[in-house]
Amino acid sequence: MTFFLFNLLNGLQLSMLIFLMAIGLTVIFGLMDILNLAHGAFYMAGAYFGYVVFQATGSFWIALAIAPLLPLVLGFLLQYFVLQPLIDRGRSAHLDMALLTFGLLFFTIGLIDLVFFETLGLTFMSIDKPAGLGSYVNIGTFYPSYRLFIIAVGLLVALIVWLLLERTVVGAVVRAGVDDREMVRAMGVNVYVVFASVFALGCGLAGLAGVIAGAELSINITMGVQILIPTLVVVVLGGLGSVKGCFFGSLIVGMTETLSQAYVPALALFATYLILAAMLVFRPQGFFGRTPKSV
């Protein structure tokens, strides 16, 4: 019984880590119709910059507070000065955007490789967990306190994002933008700034996930591509642009990966994809997505 409970905790922990990544991706996709494959690059930017800040200050908390600002600013600049002008010029097909952002992901990986591996000789890095979270708590069995921290951060971010989108004017504009972009523009909202801000926020959250993962997993060159795939699965499962869908999608992916690994290892490799395939066949718009009005 305790074995099952601890597996649920593990599943929740993984779900929250994936959620921090997926929430930005799904809102960006829902609002701007951009499949931002560079999301993995912003995750890496957060982790590597977090490492640099941690090395300079020795504090996990300062790294956690400062590092997400880099992907946040970069995200704003990318959307406002690169993606938006391209969209205005008619280059807004899914394939155009996917190719461009995919290219950006590999450019970032190459750049990081050049700086950290080729120049500084660093291959694997890590951010030390803060005092108090580096150990384990005894709750029937030893359980890592940092995992409880990840769960708490995930739930908190989910709550804040939900409140922001559902209970504030900003959220109303964003939701309206998802539904009908032209109408929002007609009502005098500077959608470009709204778009870029939402884009930036999503990238900042990816950076936050990067710092958090940088302490639990390890910071290395393949991290961005690795996290991208489950994130895309979550976006499809949950439905584009839906915070609620993203939350439940993350839970499904995290729990499936954890429980299959614990109970049916033979399924671990493809259990998630099985669910994804079933979803695409029976409910292609995702759990909480709406049927697209036009294609």
């Binding site: 074995f3 601890f6 597996n7 593990n10 922990q13 993984l14 880590l17 069995t141 995992r147 997993l217 393949t222 690795q226 996290i227 489950p230 990966e257 954890t258 429980l259 690994q261 614990a262 290892p265 671990a268 490799l269």
Partner: peptide
Amino acid sequence: EELTPFKTTKDWGPSLLKAQQ
């Protein structure tokens, strides 16, 4: 014999718990 999916395993928690058991 706990063999984990290569390059796609994101969490070793489940495997470590199984080992504990």
